[in-house]
Design a protein around this nucleic acid. Structure first.
Lengths: 92, 92
DNA sequence: CTGTGACTGCAAGTCCGTA
DNA sequence: ATACGGACTTGCAGTCACA
C-alpha cells in the first residue's frame, strides 16, 4: 500500500475518531480545508511540513500516520476488550 | 523533534547501516544525489512520494523513517542483548 | 564521497466558488 | 459537512557546477 494512501486513510480515521470535521482539523493544522479534503482523497502529495502540522493537530506521532490498515486490529481498538475481571465466577 | 529532522536523521542512520553512499542510495531511489544530501541536512522539505521511493530503496517501512532518536535504544540494537538464559545459577 | 548555492519547471498549497 | 473544480501564488522537485 502506497504511503500516500496510508496517510490519507489514517488522517481520516484519526480525525473521525477525534470527532473533528475536515474544516476544523484544517483550521487547527493551519492548512486549507479544500486541500485537506484532497489529501484524504489521495489526490494530493503533501510535504513533511504539512504532515507535521496535521500530526500535531491530531495529537499523534508522525509515524502514526503511516500505520498499515492490516495491522489495524491492534490499533483501531478503541477499547481492547479490557479483559474485565470476572466478578462472578461460574463455579466459584 | 521536528519530523523533518527525524526524517533526515533516520535516512542517514539507515543508509549508513546499509553501508550505502548518498550517491548509491540516491540512484536506487531514483532521486538526485545533491537533493538527498540536502534532505539529510534538513534543508529540504520532501513530499510523501519522495519518502516512498527512499523508504523502498532502504527496504524499510515509511513509518520507520520517523522513529525518535530517544527510542533508539530499542531500535538501533543490532543484537538486543538477548537475555541469555542463565546457565549457571548463583545459588542453584 | 559529500556540502552547497543557483537555477527552472511544475506541483504544492491557497482562495474562490459550486453542488 | 464534504467533494470538486478553476485560477492563482509559493515553494518543492530536479539538476548543475563547484568546493
Amino acid at each position: 500500500m502506497k504511503p500516500r494512501a496510508l496517510l490519507a486513510w489514517n488522517v481520516r480515521r484519526i480525525r473521525i475518531k477525534r470527532g473533528m470535521s475536515q474544516e476544523r482539523l484544517a483550521r487547527t493544522a493551519g492548512i486549507d480545508r479544500s486541500y485537506l479534503a484532497g489529501l484524504e482523497r489521495q489526490s494530493k502529495n503533501p510535504t513533511i511540513d504539512v504532515l507535521d502540522r496535521i500530526s500535531e493537530a491530531l495529537g499523534v506521532h508522525p509515524s502514526d500516520l503511516f500505520v498499515d490498515p492490516s495491522s489495524c486490529a491492534s490499533i483501531l481498538k478503541i477499547s481492547p476488550r479490557p479483559k474485565r475481571p470476572r466478578l462472578l465466577r461460574k463455579n466459584g
